Amino acid sequence: MFSLKGMTAAITGGTSGIGEAVAARFTAAGARVVIIGRRDGSEVARRTGAIAAVRADCSAEAEVSRALHDARDALGENLDVLVNNAGVENTGPMIADATVEELNRVFAINTFAVFHGLKQGARVMKDGGSIINTASIAALLGIPGYSQYSASKAAVVSLTRSAAVELAPRGIRVNSVCPGSVFTPMLPQDHPEVPVAARMSPLGRVGTTDDMVGVYHFLASAESRYMTGQALVVDGGIVAGVSLGTLEAVATMAAGVVS
């Protein structure tokens, strides 16, 4: 069960964070993997067991097309799985202080990279394959200071649904994963988001990449063969409702105000 033996996969944003962890999980499950990223991924490929690393700026369609064809050539056959995981963080400015330049930058990497992956990836995929897009719980929540990031990830969820319908005649499933806060190079231990996210989570902690990889593994495998167009939330329960930690913090604050 859940074996990926003999399957081929390409992972964008595969040189660090969730992408690197997914590459390691896929190879451990028997897949042959190519990682794609802006940085030199040769050491990550060695560490994860990927057969090759391809450099590309996934915000540019021509580079995505070239990278996916290179991945197919390295694998020797079309892809069974494509993970569109390239992304960038953006937090801080409220809408009133945000710039169009930053909005364009965030969308170019978080949204257009997925669009390019869906368009170009389908051309090098086998019928019956699986495409997995990395979105975020920010796509589902309104969070002050996250407007540009949230909008870019909400667009990923929408693209996932559209692509799922369009690619269904070929049997290609398209789903997205919506992680909560996860420790990666984009979210180090000392990031100000960490204590807030831990308190907001009913499970009381920030996620790790190990918490994420099982969902990607499931979506890549035949066990998810009747699932498409979905956004799977993996967030320690933040979207489920108000955590006890949040209530305790509010109660403490309220008591301080009253006293």
Rank of each mutant, 00 (worst) to 15 (best):
G204K: 01
S147V: 12
L140Y: 10
R38N: 10
Q189G: 02
A139Q: 07
I36T: 06
V242G: 08
G142W: 10
L82G: 01
M227S: 12
L82H: 04
C178W: 07
E248H: 12
E61C: 13
T99I: 12
A71C: 06
V81Q: 02
I109R: 10
I36E: 06
A98M: 11
N110G: 12
D80V: 12
A249C: 07
S221G: 14
C178E: 14
F112P: 01
R46P: 07
D40R: 09
G204N: 03
V22N: 09
M1E: 13
T15Q: 11
F107D: 09
G87T: 06
A24T: 10
V54G: 08
V165W: 01
L68F: 02
L219Y: 09
V54W: 06
L141S: 04
A251V: 05
A240H: 10
D40Q: 09
I132K: 07
D73R: 15
A71E: 05
I36H: 00
A56V: 13
I109H: 10
L79N: 07
L75H: 02
F183H: 08
V64D: 02
K119I: 00
A31S: 08
L75F: 00
A151Y: 04
S243Y: 01
V64E: 01
K119T: 01
E77M: 05
R173Y: 04
F112T: 09
